[in-house]
Write a protein that binds this DNA or RNA. Structure first.
Length: 822
DNA sequence: CTCAAACGGGG
DNA sequence: GGGTACGTTTGAG
């Protein structure tokens, strides 16, 4: 029988036929080693879900139940079969279960709905697993892994842009490494507002085969830019070029929420079919979480921002996830300065060259980021067993969940249901349990700091102490065999390995193996990069497993498990801190699984590490991160629960900031700029006194009216029609005033306003920026609600009070020596 | 104190 | 397209 080897890139399903004969077709999109694009069609897989009968049902009653299910009808159509399944378990205990096989995927929730209230039905399971995900799991297929399809080759039908179509009789996973070279195309849009309407003025594209293009609208020919006659023409040309370049991956930055919705809206308006797919279908939007993801059949649309927001954010030192900051950190290359409004100015001046260079720069960065991140996304796909499209949009909790679901299938465990809405709410309302241990920072500026942290503290605890919902408070092991939780009256079984610890242990073991292999490989090799990314994927999933126990939407939710893990965590970090102190080291700050210690040399740091690790049990291990020249540590707002707020400078002068940059766009520029300047004064000039002087000068300027009007404007969006607001915030009242003046404001408008002097609430004193008089602004508001809160985030930790910023009297000489602790 | 609403990324 | 899926902060009341 003809067979073909290919790498799985994406999967989905369609249906064929109608009524009773309607059936699903699984489609797997892939690529061969030789570079041929493949579409595999599998008609052999059927949708199903599980039904658990009421406890204590006799054999004959069970048969009757199965028969009754089989007799259900939806529009004359019944389930295909009902099977009694043996050997399944639920949370470790044997369970009686029926499997209901239906015609097409949408029948699953319909039939479930019909039988869920029945007296003889206890519960239904696995009705919420997407059909194509179900297929990948049941067939043990892994995206970005290889598979062999057997069956018959078919002609690509009309409108199918693939080299080979294969009708499968079977698809089996293969143990092979690597993946084919993929063509990646990045793009970017520029829009301006013209007469109150948004308009796409440019689209740039770039791919990893050297293709580069900027498209714009106009009449005049411009060097290096292709000029189209209208916005519609522009979009059509973009579609044409995408199809011509025929990429496997389409990447952009924030394209789920911005570029594709805009393209879709415009294309619809002009009645242009937005067909970028390989099967002739339009771009569709799939809800995933709170975002709609733009889906292009046969190609992988990766929104780089989504992946960074969900997964990479935690490892980035930047807290601002703009393309500029992210690119600077990941590829060492940022954007040229061009403020958002400058694009509009350039457009009015017909300065196409500037816009094109800006737009191409964005495509270029998106392409480089894709080049950098795709290998990580692909490894995540392999570990989780879900498509790159999906894993790049998942949260940590979802990654963990899919790993667990896959494993559950492999060992015959029925997957617990997602909690219902009420249950999620109940879980959220429960008072929080004690988290990680925080050793209050010794506030101020410190020199010579070494950072240590536990490598995977929580996963290590989960494995070492067998923390799992079904091993909790077991009755079948002796007291001295148990894993007793330090601060709680709970224990975990010492005899039988729990489901979750088993899965996590597998991840950790694989990671250890890979790390061993890495030691023998040159850092430059392709294999090294791939394996490095694999171990990283394993690490982040293992680390997220703890959070999954405490996540309100979890299928394997267990507050006690989460609580127990943090309890052990506190025990271990306290142990390390007290060891450090016994060795006469000064511990500046400790948080959950990390500690900052005053240590001068790397050698000394290593020595300290060795001593500590020799005293830790099992797989618990402390790591040495880095040595820093100096840093400032600041207490959180409450003073009690210290937040993670510190800034460090390493030996090369690179600044790491945590927890300060939280000033958002609905703040006035004056607050944002002030905060930035005082951080610079402290870290670069090491002068808190200078920082205070900066704030005082700004406050003084505010009083004297020596400020730029633009720096006072606050931008807030109307997210619903004005009439629908219950809470009338400042921007809502400003919008009403605008409307009264005959200006067009509607849902989605961004309202620019300033707060003026006078009486009444802040909202009542909000005036639209356009038409407001510079002289009318309220210096007190800008001082107390903008500049001071922004400044105090940094300065409170250095011992300053609000009064210090406000007082006119000369501040006593604050020298660096007061803060630098040698 | 609670509740509603906004932000993020993009332009 | 197989229910729902973020986490944090500000201002009003």
């Amino acid at each position: 029988m003809p067979a073909l080897k290919f790498c799985i890139l994406d999967a989905d399903y369609i249906t064929e036929g109608e009524g009773r004969s309607e059936r699903p077709v699984i489609r797997i999109w892939g690529k061969t080693r030789e570079g041929k694009s493949v579409l595999v069609l599998d008609r052999t897989f059927e949708p199903y879900f599980y039904v658990q009968p009421r406890d204590g049902l006799s054999e004959s009653e069970l048969k009757l139940l199965a028969k009754r299910i089989l007799q259900l009808r939806i529009e004359g159509k019944g389930p295909k079969r009902v099977e009694k399944i043996k050997g399944r378990k639920f949370l470790g205990k044997p369970i009686k279960i029926l499997r209901v096989i239906v015609g097409v995927p949408p029948d699953v929730p319909k039939f479930r709905e019909l039988l869920k209230e029945w007296r003889d039905v206890e519960e239904e399971y696995e009705y919420g697993v997407n059909f194509y995900k179900r297929y990948l799991i049941d067939k043990k297929l892994t995206p970005m892994g290889w598979a062999q399809v057997e069956g018959r080759e078919a002609k690509p039908g009309k409108g199918l842009r693939v080299d080979v179509v294969f009708e499968a009789s079977s698809v089996k996973p293969l143990e092979e490494n690597g993946y084919p070279k993929l063509r990646v195309l990045a793009f970017d849009l520029e829009l301006v507002e013209e007469r109150g309407k948004e308009k796409i003025i440019m689209i740039s594209m770039m791919d990893n085969k050297g293709f580069k293009k900027a498209l714009t609208i106009g009449k005049k020919k411009t060097l290096g830019v292709e000029v189209l006659g209208s916005e519609g023409e522009l979009i059509k040309r973009f579609i044409e070029l995408v199809q011509k370049r025929n990429p496997e991956v389409i990447a952009a930055y924030n394209s789920d929420r911005f570029d594709f919705p805009k393209l879709q809206e415009k294309a619809e308006g002009y009645r242009i079919p937005l067909i970028l797919s390989r099967d002739g279908s339009h771009v569709t939007f799939r809800r995933s979480g709170r975002v709609s993801a733009a889906d292009i059949k046969g190609r992988i649309h990766i929104d780089i921002f989504d992946f960074i927001e969900h997964i990479l954010r935690a490892t980035l030192s930047s807290e601002v996830l703009t393309l500029d900051m992210v690119a600077k950190e990941l590829i060492g290359e940022g954007k040229e300065d061009m403020e958002w409004k400058d694009i509009e100015k350039a457009w009015k001046k017909k300065d196409l060259k500037s816009i094109a260079s800006y737009c191409l720069q964005d495509s270029n960065l998106a392409l480089k980021l894709a080049d950098n991140l795709l290998p990580q996304i692909f490894e995540l796909s392999k570990v989780v067993g879900q498509t790159p499209f999906d894993v790049s949009r998942h949260f940590y909790s979802q990654l963990v969940e899919w790993v667990l679901i896959r494993k559950a299938f492999d060992i015959g465990e029925i997957v617990p249901n997602r909690p219902k809405y009420d249950e999620v709410m109940r879980r959220r309302k429960v008072p929080p349990y004690v988290g990680g241990y925080v050793q209050q920072p010794k506030e101020g500026i410190h020199d010579n700091i070494a950072l240590f942290d536990f490598q995977s503290l929580y996963p290590s605890i989960t494995i070492t102490h067998n923390v799992s919902p079904e091993t909790l408070d077991c009755k079948d092991c002796k007291v001295n065999e148990r894993n007793q939780v330090p601060d709680l009256k709970h224990h975990f079984c010492g005899k039988h390995n729990g489901f979750v610890p088993r899965v996590i242990e597998e991840l950790v073991k694989k990671r250890v193996e890979i790390k061993e292999k890495l030691k023998r490989l040159g850092e430059r090799s392709f294999e090294y990069r791939a394996l490095y990314n694999r171990q990283y994927a394993l690490k982040i999933i293992a680390n997220a497993s703890y959070g999954y126990y405490g996540y309100a939407g979890s299928r394997w939710y267990s507050r006690v498990c989460a609580e127990s893990i943090t309890s052990w965590g506190r025990m271990y970090i306290k142990k390390v801190i007290s060891m450090a102190e016994k060795m006469k080291y000064n511990v500046i700050y400790g948080d959950t699984d990390s500690l900052f210690v005053k240590i001068k040399t790397r050698k000394e740091a290593r020595k300290f590490l060795e001593k500590v690790n020799s005293k830790l049990p099992g797989i618990m291990e402390l790591d040495f991160r880095d040595l820093y020249e100096s840093g400032i540590f600041v207490l959180g707002k409450t003073g009690l629960a210290a937040k993670k707020r510190y800034a460090l400078i390493d030996k090369k002068g690179v600044i790491t900031i945590r927890g300060f940059e939280k000033v958002r766009r609905d703040w006035a520029n004056i607050a944002r700029d002030t905060q930035e300047n005082i951080l610079k004064a402290i870290l670069k000039d090491k002068s808190p006194a200078k920082a205070v002087r900066i704030v005082r000068r700004i406050i003084d300027n505010l009083k004297k009216g020596k400020v730029e009007f633009d720096d006072l404007i606050i931008y807030t969006q109307l997210t619903k029609p004005i009439e629908k607001y219950e809470q009338i915030g400042p921007h809502v009242l400003a919008a009403k005033k605008m409307r009264a003046k005959g200006m067009a404001v509607h849902e989605g408008s961004t309202i620019a306003y300033v707060i003026t002097k006078g009486t009444g609430s802040i909202s009542e004193r909000a005036e639209p920026a356009e038409g407001a008089d510079v002289k009318d602004y309220d210096p007190d508001y800008y001082t107390n609600n903008q500049v001071i809160p922004a400044a105090m985030r940094v300065l409170s930790g250095l011992g300053y009070k609000e009064e210090d910023l406000l007082s006119k009297k000369r501040l006593e000489q604050v020298s660096l020596s007061k803060f630098v602790k040698k």
